[in-house]
Simulated assay, not measured.
Amino acid sequence: MVSPAQKDLVVSAVLQGSAIWKAAFNCGDANGCAAQYEADAVMHARPFGTFTGTAEIAEFWQKIMNDGFAAVEYLDQTIAVIDANSAVLSANWKMNQASGLIHQELWVLQPDGTAKLREDDFEVTGE
Rank of each mutant, 00 (worst) to 15 (best):
L106E: 08
T125K: 13
N92E: 15
N92M: 13
I102M: 13
H103T: 10
N92V: 12
G28D: 01
Q62R: 09
A23E: 14
A39V: 13
I79H: 08
F60N: 04
G17S: 06
T52Q: 14
R118L: 11
G126W: 09
Q62P: 02
K7V: 00
A80Y: 01
F69M: 09
W21T: 01
N85R: 04
E127T: 14
D121R: 03
D8Y: 03
S86M: 03
Y37T: 09
Q16P: 00
Q110K: 01
N96S: 10
P111W: 12
A45I: 05
K22C: 12
L89I: 11
T52Y: 06
R46A: 14
N85A: 14
Q97V: 05
F48I: 00
L117K: 00
Q62V: 01
T114H: 15
A70F: 10
L89V: 04
G126Y: 07
G32M: 09
F122K: 03
N85G: 14
D112R: 04
W93S: 03
I64G: 13
K94I: 05
A45M: 11
F48R: 00
W21A: 05
R118D: 06
G49W: 00
G17R: 02
M65C: 05
L75N: 14
L89H: 02
D121T: 10
I20E: 11
P47G: 01
F60K: 08
T78L: 07
E119C: 02
S18A: 12
H103V: 10
Y74H: 11
I79T: 12
F25C: 02
V124H: 08
S3G: 03
W93G: 03
A24Q: 09
N31C: 08
A30N: 00
A13G: 05
N31D: 14
R46I: 13
F69N: 12
L109M: 03
M43N: 11
D120G: 15
T114S: 15
L109V: 04
V42C: 13
G32K: 05
D121E: 09
F69A: 14
Q36E: 14
E38N: 06
G68N: 05
A45H: 08
A87R: 01
E119V: 06
S99V: 02
W61K: 00
T78I: 06
M43C: 14
F51Y: 07
T50R: 06
V14G: 08
A71P: 03
A98G: 01
S90A: 15
